[in-house]
Each structure stands twice: as C-alpha cells, then as structure tokens.
Design a protein around this nucleic acid. Structure first.
Lengths: 154, 154
DNA sequence: CTATCTGCAAAGGGTTTGCACGCTT
DNA sequence: AAGCGTGCAAACCCTTTGCAGATAG
C-alpha cells in the first residue's frame, strides 16, 4: 500500500507524483523523494499535522527519512509559500494576557507586536452571523479574530 | 523605584498590593510575594509577555524568584482564570497546513481538534466591517477567525 | 500547625545546527 | 560537474518535574 496510489484513470483523486513535482518546481525547489513524500503527507493527513506526525507518515514509506529533514523541508515549504504554519496554544513560547475578557488581536507583521483589540459591534456581528447560520453540530463558545497587517508609514 | 508605586491619592492608577491580594484570594490562591509580583507584571507589561519576560520584570524587584516558579504560577493563574494564554506561531509544537488559502479555524475544546472553516460571506462581512471603520494607522492584510467550541452530543 | 508554595537542578520534548556524503539538475 | 539537499548527532531552548525547605492562613 504505497501512498502513491495514483490511478491514471482517476486523475486528481489523490495527488500524484508528477503533480507534486510540478508544484515543487514552480516553487523553485528540487523534487527529491523526501520532499515529494512530505508534500504528499501534508495533503493526505487530516487536520493540521505536527512535524512529528508528518515524519511518521513519511517513514511508513521511506523509513530512512530523518526528523531533521522533515523540519528543514517544512521550513522551506513555508518560505516558498507551499504551506502555512498555524499557531497552537500547546508547547513552547507561550504568551500570557492579563485581560481575560474576550477580545481580538492585531498582529503587526513588521514589528511582530500583538495588540489587543476590542469592539462590541464586531462581536455582535460575528455572533449574529453564526446564530443565523449555525455550524452543523458544532456549538461555538467564543470567537477571536486574528488580524494580520502592518502600520501605514507616517 | 519599586513597582508598587501606588499612591493613595490616585487609587487605581496602578494596581496596588491590596487589590492584587484580593484578586488572588478571590481566585482561591495564597497571596505570596511572588504571586503578587507576577500578577502585577502581567498587568504592567505591554502586549503579551512570555514567561521569560515576566521573570525579568519580577527579578528586577525580587531577584531570587526562579523561572520555574514563574511557570508554575502562570499555570495556576490560567487554571484560576486570572490570566489567559494566547497562541503564538513561534516556538514549539508547530502545526502545518497544506491549504494556503485564507480560512478560519474551529477549535474543539473537547477533542483538541483543529478544523478548517471557509465561508466567503463571513470573509466579506469582516472585510466590509473594517473597510468602513478602519483601524487607525493599522492596515489589515488578512483575517483569521478562531472559533472555540465543542460538538453537541448526538 | 499543616497544606501549599518556592527554589533548585535535573530531565524532557521539540526544534535547530554543522558537517560530510549523496542526489537532482 | 556543481551545488543544493540529506542524514546523523549534538546542541539548544523552553517547559516540566521532584523534592527538601519555607511560608501563608
């Protein structure tokens, strides 16, 4: 059971080798076996996998791939825009906030600052949106909007 | 220059010792010197300080306070609801996402799952909100809504 | 007085780095 | 053939843990 279960008859039902090669080439990255496997794992794995999970997935096919390579490769993918990194409250570099009321965050991409932002109108807007629409069997408790941007010069 | 620069004439211009003691007592935590200093640091420090930054601030007054204590104390504050923890993309336990398009996240507080959520109407709603209102000299590039909640049983 | 909290130091987990070898282009 | 990419292992950083002594209530 190779992860490259691409069937020519059903193109696109799984990412296939050539498609992945193409994506790497477009991003300016060499198409090595490891990178193809890692890129495929990212597409195949559900949710937002950790480096560790990607490594396990890749190792199922190619056990010699090292965890260090997975880290380096994921970094290069992020730099090339092939992948995004999503924040997680678990783990290192935690930050704390004395303000326990619900509020939103402005991330300044220039200065890396995190600024609190509160706006009751915005809260109401979002709350109403989900009140009318719903999210299937998912019941939202709280909302936090992350606004990335930068300060306009002057 | 003690951080306890509380002036009885200007109550509330700085958090004062007794107020902080009270907050700790209400939360069911013993009012130790360390906890008062740490709680004060959280209020005084700008942005979202790391444990390291809190430690530096506290050590300015009481150099014997250990970093380990800061970690334990912050944990107890979070458990008691005195403080929130905010996620940061920096540091450990990174997660990756092959979907590079802008989208939102559902965090299931029960299963710790992170589920992608896209809704063009929601995007438009938020974009329009800030288009009319603005954020001073802050120019938003992208928005990401973090929706915490849980699955309804059944 | 007693349970809780602190300080210390060691362990732990995740991530990064340096270098020699191998592979893509 | 030339240079980028890989594997390995050590180093690194942040966080957690265990335990003896100190302290608040």
């Amino acid at each position: 059971m190779t992860p490259f279960s691409d069937h020519p008859e059903f193109p696109g039902c799984q990412p296939n080798r050539d498609e992945l090669r193409q994506r790497l080439a477009t991003a300016g990255l060499r198409a090595t076996t490891q990178r193809i496997l890692i890129l495929e794992s990212l597409v195949v794995l559900p949710g937002h996998p950790t480096a560790e999970q990607v490594h396990r997935q890749v190792a199922a096919t190619e056990p010699t791939v090292s965890l260090g390579t997975v880290y380096k490769t994921l970094d290069s993918f992020v730099a090339a825009g092939l992948t995004k990194r999503v924040a997680s409250a678990e783990g290192a570099c935690r930050r704390y906030d004395s303000d326990c009321s619900a509020h939103h965050h402005l991330y300044c991409t220039d200065t890396k600052e995190i600024i609190d932002y509160s706006n009751p109108e915005l809260d109401a807007l979002i709350r109403d949106f989900f009140a009318t629409r719903g999210l299937g069997n998912f019941q939202p408790h709280s909302f936090s909007l992350h606004i990335a941007g930068s300060r306009t010069s002057s």
